[in-house]
């Protein structure tokens, strides 16, 4: 069908070939469109970079630069002290370790559990599989507020408060931050793979677990990458759950500490802690820097991954 339509349009294209004049104006229009789209891209790109640029620019301003309204983007020299103050206020050495534990462990858990369960849901048909799929979709729209109080009382009964467990254990069972979305990504991905794949391996005598580990999982690399990236970023940045489940200062992650730093600053208690706008931005940079490095290294695979996961499939 498709070939036919291509052939047909080729034929009509040939007929129109005579219409040279029209073609030239067409080319001119296309060029204008191209220039226009570059302008839009660059402007939009600037807006998208703005938060990072603003952070970098403001974080290096000294107090004098902050007060000087003639200094907008380029401060008079880099004022590194902001980072020292932010480092101390963030309790960086401690909170960084907590952030790592509260982001990387859940990331591993969500990638593994959602890959396993998504494989089951995407490739097997059994009674209730449609119901489970509907439940996954339902989970997407449950506001975290609805369950957070009962989760808190559940975790305090288990004596998990002020440990990493409230973040890690649910993640290893496909829950946690946006677990349902990751479940959906894997389910759709495995659904999209050709059926012959596991049948061939089956005929060769491989068991279910071997098929999953040796055939399916290697194919699922793009999906795993996308899920890992998003899981890492969202867990790292989440300060909502963390603000409930850990309250002792030595268990806090960076995000919560940044939030409390912002609170101190807004309440006007900034002066004695040396906080100002520039220090707040320096704090933001310190928090986002590890993610930024991961992002720079991985952004290429992110796009490729999304393109191949069928995130947008059916």
């Amino acid at each position: 069908m498709k070939d036919l339509s291509v052939k047909l349009s080729k034929a009509t294209g040939m007929l129109q070939e005579n219409n040279v004049g029209k073609r030239y104006t067409q080319k001119g229009k296309n060029l204008a469109l191209k220039i226009f789209s570059y302008i839009v891209l660059i402007e939009l790109g600037f807006i998208f970079l703005l938060p990072l640029l603003f952070m970098v620019s403001t974080s290096t301003k000294s107090l004098a630069d902050l007060l000087d309204s003639s200094v907008v983007w380029l401060p008079n020299g880099v004022y590194w002290d902001n980072f020292v103050v932010a480092y101390n206020n963030l309790n960086f050495a401690v909170t960084l370790k907590n952030s790592f534990m509260m982001a990387i462990l859940p990331m591993i858990g969500q990638v593994l559990s959602c890959a396993i369960a998504g494989y089951g849901l995407g490739r097997y048909q059994f009674r209730g599989s449609k119901l489970i799929f509907a439940l996954v979709l339902l989970c997407l729209i449950i506001p975290p507020q609805t369950i957070i109080i009962s989760l808190y009382s559940l975790f305090s009964e288990l004596e998990w408060i002020n440990t990493y467990l409230p973040f890690v254990v649910p993640a290893f069972f496909g829950q946690g931050l946006r677990g349902a979305l990751f479940m959906l990504i894997f389910t759709q991905f495995f659904k999209g793979l050709p059926k012959e794949l596991d049948e061939a391996a089956r005929i060769d005598g491989a068991g279910a677990i071997r098929v999953f580990l040796t055939v399916m999982l290697p194919l699922a690399k793009p999906a795993m990458f996308v899920v890992a990236m998003f899981s890492l970023v969202w867990n790292w940045n989440d300060n909502y759950m963390a603000s409930f489940f850990v309250n002792s200062p030595e268990m806090r992650p960076l995000s919560t500490q940044l939030d409390s730093m912002n609170g101190t600053f807004n309440m006007g208690g900034g002066v004695e802690n040396g906080l100002n706008e520039a220090v707040m931005m320096a704090g933001c940079i310190l928090v986002v820097l590890p993610l930024f490095i991961v992002y720079i290294l991985g952004q290429r695979y992110l796009v490729e991954g999304v393109e191949r996961t069928g995130l947008a499939g059916d």
Binding site: S113, A117, G120, P170, G174
Partner: peptide, 20 residues
């Protein structure tokens, strides 16, 4: 199929449905 999906179902029952 049930075994693969059970990972999620257990988590759903314990950490979503029960709190809900």
């Amino acid at each position: 199929g049930y075994l693969f999906v059970s990972v999620w179902v257990i988590g759903f029952l314990a950490f979503t449905l029960y709190p809900l």
